[in-house]
Structure formats: C-alpha cells, structure tokens
Amino acid sequence: MADKQEKREVYIEKRVRALTTMLLTRSDNLLIEEVTDDIGQDYIVRFRTPGKEGLREFGIELRGAWTSVTKDHADKVLRLALQQVKRYGPFPRPVCLFFFTMENDDAWYTWVAEPNVSQEGKHVLRLRDAPDCQPLDKRALKEIVDRVDLWYDGFFPSLIGNGQGKSKTVRKQSKR
C-alpha cells in the first residue's frame, strides 16, 4: 500500500513537471532551467526585457495532488508546503509555488518570496506567512513575469556602485 502511494506520488510529480514545462514554454522569451538539486526550487526561469538591462529571474517550486481544489482548499493544502520552501531561504530571487491537481488539471500559484517595495523605497523580497493562491494560466504567468520584471527595474540600481566601491576616506584608511 505504501509502495503504491509512493508510486502515485512519483506519477504526480512527473506530470506536474510536464505541465509546468508546457506552461512555461508557451512564452518563447523565457529561459527555463530545471533544477535537479534540492535547493527549494524546481525551476529557475530567466528572461531579458527588450530595452532594459540585466537578466531577470525567478524560482518555482512545484507541488501536486490528485484531488481538485477550491481556492480556500488550495490555501490550506499549500500552507505546509510554503513553510517547507521558506526553510531554504532567504532567496536571491523572487520565488513562486505552483500547484497542479490531476483530477481536472487545475493549476494554482502563490508567492513564497514576493517582489515588494518597502516603506523606505527599497526593493525587497517579502516572505509570505500564508499562501494566497491564484489560478495559474498563461495570463497569470505573464502577470508573474511582469511583476518580476518591474521589481528588477528598481532592484538592479541598488546593486550597482560605480568606481572602486568604498568611499575615499575608507580606501585611505585601508591602505595604511
């Protein structure tokens, strides 16, 4: 019985990966890396935006189940998954959790590390405490990509410092 359940989970996992690849490859501007190591993300998705600098990316962790669910049920089911993924953090990129059900091929997503702007205007990743599942389809994927894109617009400038990095005084002190 346990063996049968384990096999069933393997089937679900395989199919969830296939459905994710199907969804992601609908957009030909996305570079998709399937992660095999245990880093709390099954996919890293990268893209460039015409007219903007820098390679932008986000991570995806996958979950699947047999029974189809409502939003409330999906939020409940993914609560534990969200906590599990958060243990791998902090993350250097935005991270989403995708959830597929086999019964009717429904798909949901929730942010784990959500692109956000703090009150001080800093571009930060907010680790969610609870899932807020939204239906996942081609349109939702575009919204995710647009949000990540916008976040990097503000995040990249905060990473880059021109010149030798430290202030003149600090450089003088370190030479002594």
């Binding site: 089937y11 199919r15 990966r17 296939a18 690849t21 199907m22 490859t25 086999m102 019964e103």
Partner: peptide, 26 residues
C-alpha cells in the same frame, strides 16, 4: 524549445490520470 515542449506535451498526455487514481502509463 519545440522539442522540449513536445516532450512535455507527450508526457502530460500519456500520464493523464483520466479521472482514475493512477495514470494508464508511466
């Protein structure tokens, strides 16, 4: 990209659970 996408479509279709507890194929 077409090849990768095609493989994913085949896997998803062949492993469709079709309302059963398990798919017909692995």
């Amino acid at each position: 990209l077409i090849g990768k996408r095609g493989e994913a479509i085949v896997t998803a279709r062949l492993m469709d659970f079709c309302g059963n507890p398990d798919p017909y194929f692995d």
